[in-house]
């Protein structure tokens, strides 16, 4: 395995990037590993979550791990946050890293699909077949949500278009 080369500039930049994106607790981490001990993602086999992800960032290795899919295996269960003795809120770091990845479009196609669904209907998960199902259980075909509400969709679209997500050209 190649040695990690420590460069202060890279470390500073990595930490700042993650903190700016919401992983504000990262510098408090003492690498005790309690987060990873309870993380379902780590257990399932996504190595770069919680402690190891934080360690990589603290080593300045943002670019090196940009294609890493582990972060997208995070269940957002926040169990790490509950056990962290330093109030790092590791999940926020994972999500900050995701945002870093997303900003570079290092995302999967399924992720892209959800964004487009959200933009078009206001729902990340939607299928036409739902109409049948709803009818079957005695509900109106269209629920009283944004899916059948043009004004609501416009609002959601306005929010998304102006956001950094809009700038990525996902919609």
């Amino acid at each position: 395995m190649p040695a990690i080369i420590i460069e202060q500039e890279k470390i500073n930049e990595a930490v700042k990037t993650i903190m700016d994106l919401g992983g504000t607790g990262i510098l408090k981490c003492v690498q005790c590993g309690a987060c990873s001990a309870v993380c379902p993602g780590v257990k399932a086999g996504f190595p770069l979550l919680c402690r190891l992800l934080i360690k990589n960032i603290l080593d300045g290795r943002l670019e090196e791990i940009i294609e890493e899919s582990s972060s997208w295996g995070c269940q957002a269960c926040n169990r790490c946050t509950e056990v962290c003795p330093q109030n790092v809120r590791p999940q926020e770091v994972v999500f900050a890293f995701r945002r870093y990845q997303a900003g570079e479009l290092a995302i999967s196609t399924s992720t892209t699909t959800s964004q487009m669904n959200l933009y078009e209907t206001g729902h990340a998960v939607y299928s036409e077949s739902s109409k049948e199902l709803r009818k079957k259980v005695g509900l109106p075909e269209v629920p009283p949500t944004s899916v059948g509400d043009a004004k609501a969709q416009k609002e959601i679209q306005t929010i998304l278009e102006q956001s950094p997500m809009g700038e990525l050209g996902l919609f």
């Binding site: 005790c32 590993g33 309690a34 990873s36 001990a37 309870v38 993380c39 169990r79």
Partner: peptide
């Protein structure tokens, strides 16, 4: 047996 790492639960 000695392990470094905190018990999470």
């Amino acid at each position: 047996n000695i392990f470094r790492g905190k018990v999470g639960g």
